[in-house]
Nucleic acid binder design. Structure first.
Length: 295
DNA sequence: AATTTGGACAACCGCCGCATT
DNA sequence: GAATGCGGCGGTTGTCCAAAT
């Protein structure tokens, strides 16, 4: 059947944008907006470009308040943490980093952070908030990690896979390196580590009082004192805020209302969503936020 | 000085989900 | 319910440039 292409690829210009094209596009959008129709926009703006190309150029480069480069340790930490939890959902990850685009975050991960994460198996550098997380005493030596990953289904170790699920299986291995997990159920939990816990080389086991929601998320009771607020690095993520800023994101994963996520997320071991989904009980109940390409 | 190599970033491609017809 | 159109997303490729040889 197929679909008609969005534009005549033979006649539209491709490749790098010239300053003149940038100026045209920027001027047009600033004056008229996108009009909700990117396909028609190039013609209106006097550009010989594909609508998709215009959209990408605007979103990734010309849009106001875009930040390029200069990632902070905190941003590194957020990216790594979210990647370990939700995989390569760059748009979601970027949405949590003001001024960053999905393409930028993706490039940054592929060119820098991934290697940094790999290097985290052997601590790459000295003190610092991010360094603490990366060097937080991984319980698993590199060769062991490799064997874990290769033994997990067919997912290659740390390499991007073709789907969120298989990718997340690899991510789980990544996460076991980046964020050592409670020993009682090594396949199910992604632990958000704490900078304050840098001196805590041993992780607390999942406390006996932990509860499991119908969603499969395990909640450790702070009232029981089993896991303190210091056991997670949310303090760093929130940069001093009282509430966890990603409650909306994680409430969508867990099914919990945002208010509950805000209150309780600080003591939550995030479940590996892909593992959960892969389990037969969840095979037909896709968690929100996971794509349904199951390969 | 010339060539090779690798990193960083921009841009493209193809697929998917959703809304509309 | 099927077909179509569009926006959005993630993976991949292309290009430029600096460092290394």
């Amino acid at each position: 059947m197929g679909r008609a292409p969005c534009c005549d690829k033979a006649s539209v210009k491709k490749g790098p944008w010239s300053p003149e094209e940038d100026a045209k596009l920027k001027a047009y959008i600033e004056e008229n907006g996108t009009g909700g129709n990117w396909i028609a926009l190039p013609q209106k703006a006097g550009l010989n470009r594909c609508g998709k190309s215009c959209r990408l150029r605007w979103l990734n480069y010309l849009r106001p308040d875009i930040k390029h480069g200069g990632y902070t340790e905190q941003e590194d930490h957020i990216i790594c943490s979210l990647y370990s939890s939700i995989g390569s959902r760059w748009s979601i990850i970027a949405s949590k980093l003001p001024g960053r685009t999905d393409n930028d975050v993706k490039n940054y991960w592929n060119t820098k952070l991934k290697k940094k994460a790999m290097g985290a198996v052997q601590p790459p550098r000295g003190a610092g908030a991010g360094a603490r997380a990366f060097s937080a005493a991984p319980a698993t030596p590199p060769d062991t990690v490799q064997s874990q990953c290769t033994s997990s289904a067919q997912a290659p170790a740390l390499s991007p896979a073709s789907s969120s699920v298989t990718s997340s299986s690899g991510d789980a291995c990544f996460a076991t390196t980046m964020y050592p997990q409670p020993t009682t159920s090594p396949q199910q939990y992604i632990r958000f580590d704490a900078p304050a816990a840098a001196s805590q080389t041993e992780l607390p086991p999942v406390p006996p009082t932990a509860t499991v929601t119908p969603d499969g998320c395990n909640w450790a009771s702070t009232e029981a004192g089993a896991v303190s607020l210091d056991d997670v690095f949310l303090g760093e993520l929130t940069a001093g805020e009282q509430l966890f800023p990603y409650a909306d994101l994680f409430s969508s994963f867990t099914g919990l209302p945002e208010s509950k996520a805000n209150l309780e997320l600080s003591a939550c071991y995030f479940p590996n969503m892909a593992e959960m989904w892969a389990a037969s009980d969840h095979a037909h109940a896709k968690p929100q936020g996971l794509c349904n390409t199951l390969t």
